[in-house]
């Protein structure tokens, strides 16, 4: 069982998909000779040729729009958007064309397109390189939105995404690209839409995804030393959301904290809090709490550590649902 970084686990998954299905094409900027700015496509053009691993002109709408036509011609394009903040020029093609083509055509035209997006902060980057735009896409009917938190899931989920006949937004937590882990060929992996309990616990359910799964696990370890047992759920899929796994957990713990890097308003945390409140209000022993990025543009790198939820802010949220002393104790607006 090889140990790979998360980035190389995706590379290996892409290689597997390219190998097993001639219809798979990779499209993107700088993905050929360079191997992508994060080297996720390293060596793939050399091994599969420029006809299948294609450097595209520098236009995101053009890449997605062209992929739609290629999919209509029977291909399964995998598009790389270089950074999260560069996806917006392609927004119309993704939201109004890609997401709706199967619906518009009464199911006759399938869109087996995967869009890989390195996302999230914590790498000290300039503006537009640290964003978490997943909620825009989770809000859009017709798209599947997934994100991985570890090398094993990265390897499995990229292959599942490529094999899926629906368009999949595949969000890659770029600050975890260098996280190492064992990667095996799992015979019967969880489905693409399934959440996973990463750490079982008793007192509080922490729901998260992507880059903050590692943070939640660190927080759980710290809380454990303090006698608090946290259950950590890695959502893995943001559309659909596996609410059964979340509500089952909250029915056991009675307490919910949701954490993501993305801004709070209208984010995934709001949806999760609402659904949990609707479906297991009776089981809640405290109001759900969100620990998220603030409702500001992603700030400059020198202060990003204050924007990003970290171990301490997450535990402060845990203290709130446990009604223990916390930063808002005695706080009035």
């Amino acid at each position: 069982m090889p140990t790979l970084t998360l980035a190389k686990a995706i590379t290996a998954g892409l290689r597997r998909s390219l190998d097993s299905d001639d219809r798979v094409l990779l499209l993107g900027e700088d993905i050929g000779a360079l191997g992508g700015v994060f080297r996720v496509t390293d060596g793939l053009q050399r091994d599969f040729g420029a006809d299948r691993v294609m450097d595209m002109p520098l236009a995101e709408s053009g890449i997605i729009g062209t992929a739609i036509g290629l999919a209509m011609a029977g291909y399964r394009p995998v598009c790389e958007i270089q950074f999260d903040g560069f996806i917006y020029p392609a927004f119309d093609q993704i939201v109004s064309q890609l997401a709706k083509m199967h619906y518009r055509t009464g199911g006759t035209v399938r869109m087996p397109i995967t869009i890989r997006v390195p996302y999230g902060g914590g790498i000290g980057a300039v503006e537009h390189h640290s964003e978490s735009p997943e909620a825009y896409f989770a809000h859009t009917a017709g798209l599947r939105v997934v994100t991985c938190s570890n090398p094993q899931d990265a390897h499995t989920m990229i292959q599942q995404s490529i094999a899926c006949d629906d368009p999949v937004m595949f969000f890659e937590p770029k600050r975890r690209y260098w996280t190492k882990g064992e990667v095996a060929d799992v015979a019967d992996p969880p489905g693409l839409g399934r959440a996973r309990i990463v750490l079982p616990g008793i007192d509080v359910t922490v729901v998260t995804y992507g880059p903050l799964v590692a943070t939640a696990l660190e927080a759980a370890a710290a809380a454990s030393a303090d006698g608090v047992s946290i259950e950590v759920i890695d959502l893995r899929s943001l559309s659909p959301i596996d609410f059964d796994t979340v509500t089952d957990s909250v029915r056991r713990t009675g307490r919910l904290v949701i954490t993501h890097e993305a801004q709070q308003s209208g984010g995934l945390g709001a949806e999760i809090a609402a659904v949990v409140t609707e479906r297991c209000f009776d089981a809640l022993r405290a109001a759900p709490v969100r620990v998220t990025g603030f409702d500001i543009p992603y700030p400059a790198a020198s202060v990003e550590e204050h924007f990003l939820p970290d171990l301490d802010r997450l535990l402060d949220g845990v203290d709130r649902v446990l009604d223990r002393a916390n930063s808002l104790s005695g706080w009035t607006a």
């Binding site: 709408s61 053009g62 997605i64 729009g65 062209t66 992929a67 739609i68 036509g69 290629l70 999919a71 209509m72 011609a73 029977g74 291909y75 119309d92 093609q93 109004s96 064309q97 518009r104 055509t105 009464g106 006759t108 035209v109």
Partner: peptide
């Protein structure tokens, strides 16, 4: 309204200009 593969014409695009990219991708295919 129709099966594009049967009549070899995509269903109409309403957002202006988007279909030119789809045609280009199809041609590449």
């Amino acid at each position: 309204a129709w099966d594009p593969y049967e009549v070899k014409i995509a269903v109409p695009a309403i957002v202006i200009g988007v279909q030119t990219l789809h045609a280009t991708g199809y041609a590449l295919g």
